[in-house]
Design a protein around this nucleic acid. Structure first.
Length: 453
DNA sequence: CCCCGATGTTACATGCAAAG
DNA sequence: CTTTGCATGTAACATCGGGG
């Protein structure tokens, strides 16, 4: 068709008879194609894409904030720069900043977490239109005090001052759903206290313990057959139900002498978290399924030195990891383990196993024999991206980035020094390590940590 | 429309080795 | 066995162009 050099008049109308013939042929083939598709089975449906798991956004780094703010300005002043060149320019500009200037971006970053829009964000709002933030999910409140609560009710909550050490505060919330146990979801909280400075935006009633002060407006029936009973939850019976559940647990898993094998570290940790004397430093989360180190400095100063002999905060975190604890996403200083809960029993703690490196002679020999029996084991450990070992991470090994860092298999002659050493990356690593030591110390690890103990 | 690459930094997770 | 230091890997951040 292209060789026929069809000439079309403006408006798409062919000029000559040959063009008319061509049009007729094309139209006929179009009609035939349509007719054939009518009788054909529909094309096979594309396989459904894997369901994307919502990712929780971590805190943006100071450098990210810096780029967010500076990138538009660099692009505006140098429109000819490619995107990678802009990134390079950003890196150069970041390197020229003093520690104080970098810290200011970190401060902005912190503001972003604590107090809503920061000065930097407001400044950037003129450049980039921010997306509307999704409505925050209802907060879960723990209830004690034995007052009956129904869905739809408006209740007046009182923060527990004696446990949290915070100023007592009263709030009005709407109960949206009875969760069972001793918690319910609540929205629309607003402060009703005299202290105006203690105001807190709706929906941000958070954490520790709250007790029901008064049911202001019970939105459902009063005869007791409210929706909350669907879960079998009766707030005034909650303590009794908890005891009954504990008894059932005991029947299923008799304690026996198992408690004697619980790790001393876990036993101490459980005592510390449960003790009210250390509530200023470490507490249970509101659901009782994770520990919250609210004040790392106080925790290191008052708790670690007293209860964990010469254990620095960094080592404490490492010990948590060794026992299988995980950090809660987006929650600094909050760790959880499925068996380590406020309502855990001693035999439950004993089921938490500590991961130890092969320390004994026999274990070392076993390890060596295993490597000898299966020489590719070491290669497997290297070849297998850690993302595959960690079930919660991506399965593709990080794409080209991981492929670039992945060592060559032995068949490619990767015997002797680590391949990184031959690529100059080792020098880069040394440089990074040197620059890392110059950073401000971080109490949570990674950087040189003052041994507060 | 979607995905990938490029850019530098940070936080986090984990393995290994050494010392006590 | 405990504690610690060091090394390493990975994901995430924002943004644009290019390719399928």
């Amino acid at each position: 068709l292209a060789s026929q050099q069809v000439r079309w008049a403006p408006g798409g109308i062919p000029r000559h008879a040959e063009d008319l013939e061509l049009t007729r042929v094309l139209e006929q083939s179009r009609l035939e194609a349509e007719a054939s598709t009518d009788t054909m089975l529909p094309p096979p449906r594309k396989p459904d894409k894997p369901i994307k798991v919502a990712k929780i956004k971590p805190i943006a780094s100071p450098y990210t904030n810096f780029c967010k703010f500076e990138r538009p300005q660099i692009v505006q002043s140098n429109p000819s720069l490619a995107s990678n060149e802009v990134g390079r320019a950003l890196g150069a500009a970041w390197g020229k900043l003093s520690l104080a200037q970098k810290a200011s971006y970190k401060q902005e970053n912190q503001d972003q977490c604590d107090n809503g829009p920061s000065a930097l964000q407001l400044k950037m709002a003129r450049v980039v239109t921010p997306r509307p933030k999704p409505k925050p999910p209802p907060r879960r409140h723990q209830v004690y005090g034995g007052m009956r609560v129904t869905e739809g009710a408006t209740v007046k909550l009182k923060r527990s001052a004696e446990r949290s050490g915070w100023a007592p505060q009263q709030l009005i919330v709407n109960v949206t759903r009875i969760r069972g146990g001793d918690t319910f979801d609540a929205v629309g909280a607003c402060p009703i206290v005299d202290d105006e400075d203690a105001s807190e935006p709706p929906g941000l009633v958070s954490e520790p313990l709250a007790s029901i002060e008064k049911v202001l407006d019970d939105g459902s029936d009063q005869d007791g057959d409210h929706d909350g009973d669907q879960d079998g939850f009766e707030p005034e019976r909650a303590p009794v139900q908890a005891r009954e559940q504990d008894d059932q647990d005991d029947e299923l898993e008799p304690t026996g002498s198992a408690a004697a094998f619980a790790s001393p570290f876990l036993t101490k940790l459980f005592e510390v978290v449960s003790s009210q004397a250390t509530d200023h430093a470490i507490i249970w989360s509101i659901r009782g399924d994770s520990i919250v180190i609210g004040d790392p400095e106080a925790f290191a100063r008052d708790v670690l030195s007293a209860c964990f002999d010469h254990l620095s905060l960094r080592a404490f975190v490492r010990e948590l990891h060794r026992h299988g604890f995980r950090k809660r996403a987006l929650a600094r200083g909050q760790f959880f383990h499925k068996r380590f809960r406020r309502d855990s029993r001693p035999h439950t703690l004993s089921q938490i196993k500590c991961r130890s490196p092969p320390s004994s002679q026999q274990e070392r020999m076993d390890d060596a024999q295993e490597k000898e029996a299966w020489p590719s084991r070491a290669m497997y450990d290297q070849e297998q991206p850690q993302a595959e070992k960690r079930s919660h991470k991506k399965q593709d090994g990080g794409g080209a980035h991981a492929a670039a860092n992945r060592p060559l298999p032995p068949s490619h002659g990767a015997v002797g020094p680590h391949p990184r050493d031959s690529t100059g990356v080792a020098l880069l690593g040394a440089h990074l390590a040197a620059t890392k030591r110059e950073r401000a110390p971080d109490l949570w690890g990674g950087d040189p940590t003052p041994d507060l103990a």
